[in-house]
Design a protein around this nucleic acid. Structure first.
Lengths: 199, 199
DNA sequence: TTTTTTTCTTAATCTGCATTATTGGACCAA
DNA sequence: TTGGTCCAATAATGCAGATTAAGAAAAAAA
C-alpha cells in the first residue's frame, strides 16, 4: 500500500516493523482528478502530501490573475503549503493535480506524534527540509542572475522527465515568463529545444 | 562567551549543563573586518557561522560581474553556503562581512557529533531549516509576482532595522534591481521612503 | 464522432528595468 | 591637506520580456 513512501523514507532512516506499523497507521490515501484541489488559498493546510502517482503543483495567483508555480511534485515528492502547515496559518498557495494523481496524506498532529515516539523522523524531515532549502536558494539565485533562456535550460537539465510531460504553460509559470514568450523563445532563437525524437 | 547563541538555541530546545558544555566545546570564535571573507566561491565551506555582532552577507557574482545577495545575516542569524556545507561540495557563494563583525563557528563534523550525542539538535536544525525554507519560498514567489517597488516595500517591512544600516546598493542586490534603478525609484515615484527622521 | 476546452503559435506594440556615463559627496588614510 | 575609495543621484538610450489579440492545433470530454 505505502511502498513508495516507505522506500523513500528508508533511504534516509531505518525503521523497525513496529515503527513502520505506527507510521502507516497515521497515513491516509486520496485520489485526485485533473484540476482537483488539495487546498486553496486562505484555507488551513492540515495535510502534507506525498505523491505516489501523477503530478501536483503549488502556485499563487497574483493580482492580475497570473499563476506562478512554486513547486511541481511528481511521484516520490512531498508537497504542502509549508507556512500554513507548520505554523497553523491560513494558506497562501493553491495546490492541485495537473494530471489524475494519488497521494498519501499525513496530518500535522501525526507528524508531531512521530517526533515524540520515533525521533528518527526528526532526522528524516530535517534532511528533506535542508535539501529543499538548497534547491530554493539555487532557484532564487537563478532568477536573480540568469536570462529566461538560461532558466529554461536549467529546468530541462534538472527535470528532464517533467519537461516532456508538463504543458509548456506550466513550465513558463515556473521559470517566470509568459507562455507567449516561452513559445517564441523556443521557436526562434538558436534553440536547444530539448526534443526527443524517438530516432 | 556564547550567550547569544545559547539563548537562540534554548528558544527551541532545552539543554542540560553537560550538554551545553559539550556543545560549546565544539565552537570557536572569529572576528571579521569590513569586507573580509569567511569563504569564497570554489572553496569548501567547512563552517556554519552564527553572527554575534555586525552583519554578514552571502552572494554570487554573475558572468557580468554583478553581485546578487542570497542572504543578510545580522546578529542572531546563522549563515553558511548550505549546499557546500551539507554535501561537501565546492561552494558557489561568497560570504563576507559588510561591517566589522564577530561570528561563532561550528564545523560539519561538530554538528554530526551533536546529532549523535544530543538528538535534540536534530530538532533545532530541523526547525531552522523549515523556517528558512518558508522564507525562501516566499521570497521566490515575491520575485515572480511583484514589481521592484513592491519587493522593496516588503523588504522594508520585513527587515526594518537592516534598511537603516545597509548601503542602498546591498538592498538593490537583494531585491534584484540595479543600484541606479533603486535610487531613481526612491527619488521619483509616489514614494514611501521609509525615512526615520528622529522627529 | 463531434463538441468543448485547453494549449500553442505568431505578431505588433509597449514598458519596466538595465546599461552607460557623469557628477558630487562622505569617509578614511597618509 | 590631499588623494583614494565608496556610494548616491541623475539622465539618456536600449532591450528583454510583457501585453494584447488572433487564429490554429491538440487534447478532453461528451
Amino acid at each position: 500500500m505505502f511502498e513508495i513512501l516507505l522506500k523513500n523514507i528508508t533511504r534516509r532512516i531505518q525503521l523497525t516493523s513496529e515503527e513502520t506499523a505506527l507510521f502507516t497507521s497515521l497515513l491516509s490515501v486520496k485520489k485526485l482528478k485533473r484540476r482537483q484541489f488539495l487546498v486553496q488559498e486562505g484555507e488551513f493546510n492540515k495535510y502534507s502530501a506525498f505523491v505516489t502517482s501523477g503530478c501536483l503543483r503549488s502556485y499563487t495567483v497574483d493580482k492580475n490573475g497570473f499563476e506562478h508555480v512554486l513547486q511541481f511534485a511528481p511521484q516520490d515528492w512531498w508537497i504542502t503549503d509549508m507556512a500554513s502547515f507548520l505554523h497553523n496559518l491560513p494558506g497562501t498557495l493553491f495546490i492541485d493535480a495537473i494530471f489524475e494523481s494519488e497521494v498519501v496524506l499525513i496530518q500535522r498532529s501525526g507528524i508531531e506524534k512521530l517526533y515524540q515516539t520515533i525521533p528518527q523522523f526528526e532526522r528524516y524531515f530535517r534532511i528533506l527540509a535542508e535539501n529543499a532549502l538548497v534547491t530554493y536558494q539555487r532557484r532564487l539565485m537563478d532568477n536573480l542572475s540568469l536570462t529566461a533562456r538560461e532558466r529554461y535550460d536549467h529546468f530541462c537539465t534538472r527535470y528532464p522527465s517533467l519537461i516532456e510531460t508538463l504543458p509548456q504553460k506550466q513550465v513558463a509559470a515556473y521559470i517566470g515568463v509568459t507562455p507567449e514568450f516561452l513559445s517564441k523563445m523556443l521557436n526562434t532563437g538558436t534553440g536547444r529545444k530539448g526534443q526527443t525524437e524517438t530516432s
